[in-house]
C-alpha cells in the first residue's frame, strides 16, 4: 500500500478482535493457533518449542523483531506468499485452516488452502479464523533450514521437514515442504514417500534430496537463478533431513 501498488477502497482493521489471538493448547494431539496470533506471541509461548519445533526453528528467520511484533500468523497464511515460511510449514505439518463467513464456517486442509502465488481457497466473503496443527509426536524430529541473502530476508530456498521413526528406528513417516520453490508452498510428496519404511541414512537422504529437486519448480529471481535454487533445495534437504533424523533418534 505504501508503494501505491494496491489502493483498497475499504480496509477493515481486525486487530481489536482479541478472541482471534493466542494458542489454544488442549490435551489432544492437535493445537490451534488463532489468526491474530503474532509471531512474537508464538516465539514466547512455551507450547511452540514443545509442540511445534518446526515453527520454533523457523521464527528467527522471519523478518526482524519489529515485524514479528506486529505480523500475524493468519495474515501471513492468507497472504500466501510462496517465499514465506509459514505456508510451507503448515503444509508440511498437514495443518488445516478454519474459514468463516456470514454463511458459516468450514475447515480447509492446507494442501487445498494454498492455491498459488498470493492465492488461497478463501472466498471473498470469508475470513481466516485459525489454523490447527498436529503436535510433534514422540520419536520424531523436525528441522527448518533456509538460505537467504541476509537474515530476515525472504528465503531463496527454505526446507521444512519432519521425520517420525518406528520402533525399529526406521522412518515411519517423513514430510518435506519447501518455500520459494514454486507458485506456492511445495510439498515434496515423492521425496517424503521414498523415505517411508527405510533407515534415514546418507544414501536415503541423498536420494530424497534428488527427488525434491525434481519435484520443485522454483521461479528464479535477481538473487538466485532457478538452477541455484534447485541446487540449494538439494543441499538444504540433505542437511535438514539429517538433522531431523538425528533429532528423532534423540527424542523419546
Amino acid at each position: 500500500m505504501n508503494f501505491r501498488l494496491t489502493q483498497p477502497a475499504i480496509l477493515i482493521d481486525i486487530n481489536p478482535l482479541n478472541e482471534l489471538a493466542g494458542v489454544n493448547n488442549g490435551a489432544g494431539e492437535r493445537l490451534r493457533v488463532g489468526a491474530l496470533t503474532r509471531y512474537r506471541n508464538l516465539e514466547r509461548d512455551p507450547a511452540t518449542a514443545q509442540h511445534l519445533p518446526l515453527i520454533a526453528e523457523a521464527l528467527p528467520h522471519i523478518a526482524h523483531p519489529q515485524i514479528r511484533n506486529r505480523g500475524t500468523i493468519g495474515g501471513n497464511l492468507a497472504h500466501a506468499d510462496p517465499a514465506s515460511e509459514m505456508p510451507a510449514i503448515v503444509l508440511t505439518l498437514g495443518g488445516r485452516l478454519r474459514a468463516q463467513s456470514a454463511k458459516g464456517e468450514r475447515w480447509i486442509d492446507a494442501a487445498d488452502f494454498f492455491v498459488g502465488a498470493l492465492t488461497t481457497a478463501l472466498e471473498p466473503d470469508e475470513m481466516l479464523m485459525e489454523v490447527e496443527l498436529p503436535k510433534a509426536p514422540p520419536r520424531s524430529g523436525a528441522c527448518f533450514m533456509e538460505m537467504s541473502r541476509r537474515r530476515g530476508d525472504f528465503a531463496i530456498i527454505g526446507v521444512a521437514c519432519t521425520v517420525r521413526l518406528d520402533d525399529h528406528g526406521r522412518c515411519a513417516e517423513a514430510r518435506i515442504g519447501l518455500c520459494n520453490a514454486g507458485d506456492g508452498p511445495v510439498f515434496a510428496t515423492q521425496a517424503a514417500r521414498s523415505l517411508a519404511g527405510r533407515a534415514i541414512g546418507k544414501n536415503e537422504i541423498a536420494e530424497a534430496a534428488k527427488l525434491v529437486q525434481s519435484e520443485i519448480d522454483p521461479g528464479g529471481s535477481i538473487h538466485a537463478s532457478k538452477e541455484f535454487q534447485r541446487h540449494l533445495a538439494g543441499v538444504l534437504t540433505m542437511r535438514a533431513l539429517t538433522k531431523a533424523g538425528e533429532r528423532a533418534r534423540g527424542s523419546a
Binding site: 505504501n2 482493521d13 512474537r40 523483531p65 519489529q66 515485524i67 511484533n69 506486529r70
Partner: peptide
C-alpha cells in the same frame, strides 16, 4: 513492543 510506524495507520 517496538514496531515500524510506517506500517501502521
Amino acid at each position: 513492543a517496538p514496531v515500524r510506524s510506517c506500517l501502521m495507520f
